[in-house]
Design a protein around this nucleic acid. Structure first.
Lengths: 108, 108
DNA sequence: CTGTATCCTGAACGATACTG
DNA sequence: CAGTATCGTTCAGGATACAG
């Protein structure tokens, strides 16, 4: 649990992870564009966190300008059931607490 | 996801939650005894956090000495699949990373 | 383009003392 | 028994400037 929480915890982590689960891969600038409010430092932090957790992999392509591609690993894809179960619990929680109707699109 | 993460995040939260998933209920002093390194303040924080998240409920029984019983709610019990999926992902992760053999007791 | 270095602020944590 | 009050420390997050 601590390992999984460490992989998912932190501000922006769910949103960054969502981008990867949607795209399978992304570049630094793509993520920066998709999440404009996310500062450079924190984006670097999150990419390092997810890389260290084995969720994504860093691929440098040589040449200029430098281009780095982050790809979802098999272990990152294995996170999908975890994300879904968390999404489902949080959704019923919000309904119970605020009395809202369910949203059929489960894209966390 | 943010809702679920907010319910589970924070130091000691997984261990406190485990006590509730095991026992179904607990008193302040039981938790304090089960987790000696956990300070009063943080235990209060965690109980308030879990209560606010709808995971547990606070029941005051009148009289002296004051006795408070915290019980797992149905929504708290619904957290079990989430915990299990997180436990499973973290376990395979640790094996992959450190090359250890699996532990058959899945008590996170 | 893809980051790192630096500094600052606010929140979380932990220890201790005290209360209904 | 079951907490709250207070205080000091540590740490994550955010802004800005700079670098390979």
């Amino acid at each position: 649990m601590d390992i999984t929480l460490a992989a998912l915890a932190g501000r922006w982590t769910p949103l960054v992870l969502r981008e990867f689960l949607r795209r399978g891969q992304a570049t630094y600038s793509e993520l920066s564009a998709a999440l404009p409010a996310l500062s450079d430092k924190v984006l670097s932090d999150r990419l390092a966190q997810l890389t260290g957790a084995g969720v994504i992999e860093r691929h440098r392509t040589p040449g200029w300008p430098p281009r780095v591609r982050y790809t979802l690993t098999p272990q990152g894809r294995a996170l999908e059931p975890v994300v879904r179960s968390m999404w489902e619990w949080g959704t019923t929680q919000r309904q119970d607490t605020h009395g809202q109707s369910p949203d059929p699109s489960n894209t966390f």
